[in-house]
């Protein structure tokens, strides 16, 4: 992947190959980034908007990418920031307290025709939604995508130790939520 990205980055630097190389980049990363975003924003239409915004930002800032991190890390970082910005904008727009925001996002997910989870899946998503923002992202990346802590550390710019602690706290809180189902 790193070698492929290196070749792609070379093509992205030249005007006559940039367009085609960007198409390749989108096709390579669209699915992984979509699922990363979807688990944060939950609704398909919102995830589609955020994914488009993510790639638009990548396109506009290609010249600024200094290759200090890998392309994969850079893309995930932009996708994460765009997702957080979206969730915060929902909170600001609705002007509702934190608990109600959780409820709003949960109902938004349940009413989405592209959500097929059963009752226990809804309960799990509810528990995840109640987590603080950072713990929520760490839990999703580890539990659903089984991402390495080293990769997460680069994307989230957080130490491996802090990420492990965040995941541990998140698991404990979710377990409590699932146990107290009545």
């Amino acid at each position: 992947m790193e070698n492929d990205d290196h070749g792609l980055l070379e093509l992205l630097k030249h005007d006559h190959t940039k367009g085609q190389a960007f198409q390749t980049l989108v096709k390579t990363y669209q699915e992984r980034l979509y699922w990363h975003i979807r688990k944060i924003v939950l609704n398909h239409d919102d995830a589609d908007d955020v994914l488009q915004n993510t790639f638009m930002k990548v396109w506009r800032n290609l010249d600024k990418f200094r290759e200090e991190s890998s392309l994969y890390t850079w893309l995930y970082r932009i996708a994460t920031n765009e997702s957080i910005t979206f969730v915060n904008s929902v909170k600001k727009r609705s002007l509702i307290p934190m608990n109600d925001t959780t409820e709003f996002l949960l109902q938004n997910m349940i009413s989405d025709e592209f959500f097929e989870g059963d009752e226990i899946q809804v309960r799990l998503q509810e528990a995840i939604l109640k987590l603080p923002e950072k713990q929520r992202i760490v839990f999703n990346m580890k539990y659903f995508d089984d991402m390495k802590y080293e990769d997460m550390s680069e994307i989230l710019e957080t130490s491996v130790g802090a990420l492990k602690a965040s995941f541990h706290h998140a698991v404990k809180k979710i377990e409590d939520h699932l146990k107290n189902r009545d």
Partner: peptide, 23 residues
């Protein structure tokens, strides 16, 4: 951490971490 999930979170480990979302 993922291997030890059963010990620290038995309820959570009972769930299949399958994706409930579709496109």
């Amino acid at each position: 951490e993922m291997k030890d999930l059963e010990k620290i979170a038995p309820e959570l480990s009972k769930l299949k971490n399958e994706n409930p979302f579709r496109v």
